[in-house]
Amino acid sequence: MGKIMAVVTADKEQVAGGAPIFLVPNAEELQKVAFKLEKILDASAHDLQNGVMILVDHKSSSE
């Protein structure tokens, strides 16, 4: 099972609790922050298509 390492969103109403949440002002910024986080955390960015992106570490599940 993958583990959610971070959540990035421009819509504050969509998210709460759990993993670290990064609030961004717009969709463009969403991509930029998610891009950086992907490289930093070595976790894949997935788009939930509701303005929220999650960074999931799939590796911890396979090891």
């Binding site: 991509q31 998610a34 891009f35 992907e38 894949s44 960015a45 997935h46 788009d47 298509q49 992106m53 999650i54």
Partner: peptide, 20 residues
């Protein structure tokens, strides 16, 4: 298809970043 990656009609994975 948006963030969804397909090979023909088979779903492979969700790709979040435009760059990727």
């Amino acid at each position: 298809d948006g963030p969804n990656l397909f090979v023909d009609d088979i779903y492979i994975m969700n790709v979040g970043l435009d760059d990727t």
